[in-house]
Simulated scan of single mutants.
Amino acid sequence: MSPSNSRTALITGATAGIGLELARQLAARGTDIVLVARNEERLGEVALQLTQEFGVRTEVIAADLTDRAALEVVEERLADAYRPVDLLVNNAGFGLKGRFLDNTVEQEQAHLDVLVVAPMRLTHAALGPMVERGSGQIVNVSSVAGYLPRGTYSAAKAYVTRFSEWAHNEYKPQGVHVMALCPGFVRTEFHERMEVGRDSAPDFLWLDAEEFVRAALADLDAGKAISVPTLRYKAIVTGAKYVPGGLLQRFQSMGRR
């Protein structure tokens, strides 16, 4: 088992995709992991795997982040001064395949709750103890979509990126590092759950999850406020600033087919 003075990370959406890979790479560093996801059985399986493979302590919280009562349980864990969380990763998320009017307002509300409300509330819960201790890290998983016109997903991710950048500058003097992590297309279950095929975007845009997370943690170690993977996505983000929004919007179906 890991020593009692080891770091602890709390990761939402930790049983699949980027969240699972982050849990694995952080555990490999000796970080204890608090896993948050909806599926209690899957949480137990991942927790056991991490403990057996890396010898770290694990804890699980089964929570649907669209449920305010369940979200409050996670907030309370983050605010617990006797069991400090050194790193919060707001990773939970999902996409809606349809365009705005193809979705019900309830679907859009759940989308907003997971992508915006949950990261905001969990960041608020974590920041207090971190500022009091004078140390801590928060990673909010955003998306390069936040720089592009792609409906409410894009709008939500734009919020996450700007909120994180502001929080980084606001609380860095008090010892807390906040980073927006902006993936593009990553080979995970995210698009499969949307029933979107890998052929929905060109091959060169798809990233390997292990390499992506390794680069993300390197940016976190370097103290960056925003992490954008690979030169190709950095170029897309830079170029998007100079391309008219109407032209960019023509490509909004990419990654949704």
Rank of each mutant, 00 (worst) to 15 (best):
N103W: 10
T66N: 10
P229N: 06
T8R: 04
Y242A: 11
D86K: 10
Q25Y: 12
E106S: 12
R162T: 11
R198I: 14
R214G: 12
V114C: 07
D199R: 12
I236T: 01
A216W: 05
H124I: 08
R256F: 09
V213I: 11
Q107D: 13
Q109K: 15
T188N: 08
V89F: 01
N103F: 11
F163V: 01
G55N: 01
G255V: 02
I138K: 05
T104H: 08
A70W: 14
E41D: 11
V144W: 00
S227D: 02
I11D: 12
G184Q: 02
D67A: 10
M254T: 08
V74L: 07
F100S: 06
R121S: 15
R24V: 14
N103Q: 12
S143G: 05
K172R: 15
L112D: 12
R257Y: 07
V85E: 02
F185C: 00
E170K: 15
F100C: 06
D219M: 02
R133E: 02
A70C: 11
P129M: 04
T31L: 07
S253T: 09
D32N: 12
G30L: 04
F100H: 07
G184M: 02
G128P: 03
A63P: 02
D219F: 00
G223I: 01
T15M: 03
A156H: 10
R198T: 15
D208Q: 13
V116Q: 09
G98F: 06
A27W: 03
V56H: 09
F163I: 01
G245Y: 12
S154I: 05
D199M: 09
R214D: 14
D219A: 04
N91H: 09
M130R: 08
G246C: 14
K157P: 00
E165A: 06
L112M: 15
T31K: 06
G146M: 01
V34C: 01
M254L: 12
V160W: 06
E211R: 11
T238M: 09
A201F: 00
R193V: 15
L78Y: 10
G245E: 13
P244A: 03
F54R: 10
E108Q: 07
E108L: 08
F54L: 08
K97D: 09
M120D: 08
M194Q: 06
L43V: 03
V141C: 00
R250C: 13
L231A: 08
I226N: 05
Q137R: 11
V176A: 04
R57W: 05
L50N: 06
P202R: 00
S6M: 03
R193Y: 15
F251C: 09
P119M: 03
Y153G: 06
D219R: 01
P3A: 14
H168L: 04
L26G: 04
S135T: 15
V56N: 08
E170T: 14
M120K: 11
